[in-house]
Amino acid sequence: MGLIDRFFSNKPNAPSTDTGSAAAARQRLQFVLVHDRAEIPPATLNLIKDDIIAVLSRRIRIDREHVSVQLTYTENESRLVVDIPLLTEALSDAPGRARGSSARPATAPRPSSR
C-alpha cells in the first residue's frame, strides 16, 4: 500500500477489500439452510441424482450431463425439484410419436390417431 493510499485508508477497512463477500454469504447460506431444513445433505442429493439417472437410463435416453436435482424452500415448504432433459431420440422408437425436440413429457406432442 502506497503512502497516498495509506493516508486515505484511514478508515478501518477500505470498502474495496470486501466487494461482494455479502453476496457470497447470501448464496452460501441459502444453500446450506435449505439442506439443513430438509435434513438432506448435499452429498445425499448427489446420490439421489445418481439413482435417478440409473433408473431412468434403463428405459429412456436422457441427457445425463444436464440432469439437475435441487432442493428449494419457499413458503415453509421444502421441495425436491428434478429437471431431466431427454435426448431427442428418446421418443424415436415409439412409432407415430412426433420427434419434438422438447424434452418435457408435458409438452411432448401426443401420438396421432392415424
Partner: peptide, 11 residues
C-alpha cells in the same frame, strides 16, 4: 479485524 467477516462470508 474486518477481514474476519468477509472471510466467513466466503468460507
Amino acid at each position: 479485524d474486518e477481514a474476519i467477516l468477509s472471510s466467513s462470508n466466503r468460507g
